[in-house]
């Protein structure tokens, strides 16, 4: 059997057909379909307005925020390899990162600096969008999503603060949750829910860890996707002032 025949046999198998739906791209039709059906080729928009690429248009603040989110996720994953969310061990793991892990200091600092930059960029982005009127109809919903994203960013910072389990962490969370408990009607219950008890202890650490590493990042990723999708479907950045609302 020739190589050609062997390959054709392979391409006729069920496994192959389920992965590569339309067979080899030999006709113009199949070539187009290969492009249209590929999700990775559609992450970025097909067309981009040139004026939205200028620095002065957005100062790239949204991009910076998203980029910081990616950095945080990646450095966060590497940090998770060394971290145990248990009461005395968490602090010792921080010491391990500082003294034992190669480039552990750099890893941790990168995570922390990226968090600072992300918070600054997110606030600045919000101010800038407000200044440029990006909240005006028809973009009100996107603005609301952005506000929720801001809240998630701050919550991510707050939950991450407890994880080193040192004096700074412990007391910051003590103060914050005590302020929380002063909210009317639901304050004390919310505090109990957040801490998993009445004290800032092992339960609180574990809950904050799950929030910080699973729940909040997933929510943030979901909302970021919607946020980007809304921009794209509205025609891209810097589009609002010249188009009318779609009727």
């Amino acid at each position: 059997m020739t190589t050609e025949e062997m390959l054709n046999r392979l391409r006729a198998t069920r496994a192959w057909m389920s992965i590569f739906r339309r067979g080899p791209a030999r006709t113009n039709r199949t070539r187009s379909l290969a492009i249209f059906g590929n999700v990775f080729l559609h992450l970025l928009p097909v067309k981009v307005r040139e004026q939205s690429l200028r620095v002065r248009a957005t100062y790239y603040l949204g991009t910076i925020s998203f980029f910081m989110f990616v950095v945080l996720t990646l450095t966060g994953i590497f940090l998770m390899f060394y971290y145990h969310p248990a009461a005395p061990q968490a602090y010792l793991d921080m010491k391990d990162l500082r003294f034992v892990v190669s480039n552990g200091v750099f890893l941790r600092n990168m995570h922390r600096v990226a968090a600072h930059i992300m918070v600054i960029a997110v606030f600045w982005h919000m101010f800038h969008v407000f200044y440029r009127g990006g909240y005006r109809p028809p973009h009100e919903f996107n603005w609301a999503i952005g506000v929720v994203l801001l809240l998630l960013t701050l919550l991510l910072s707050y939950t991450g603060y407890l994880l080193p389990w040192d004096q700074l962490a412990f007391w910051a969370i003590t103060v914050g949750t005590n302020i929380l408990s002063s909210a009317p009607f639901v304050g004390p219950q919310l505090r109990y829910l957040l801490l998993g008890g009445n004290l800032v202890g092992e339960n609180a650490l574990l809950r904050f860890y799950v929030l910080h590493c699973v729940i909040l990042p997933l929510l943030a990723a979901l909302l970021i996707a919607v946020h980007f999708w809304r921009i794209r479907k509205d025609g891209g950045l810097t589009v609002g002032e010249s188009n009318e609302r779609d009727k």
Binding site: K95, D96, R98, F99, V100, D166
Partner: peptide, 15 residues
């Protein structure tokens, strides 16, 4: 104890 640098192991530091 966990430190591997002289000043961190022997002296009073920030951490």
């Amino acid at each position: 104890g966990p430190a591997t640098e002289i000043s961190e192991a022997h002296e009073t530091t920030l951490a």
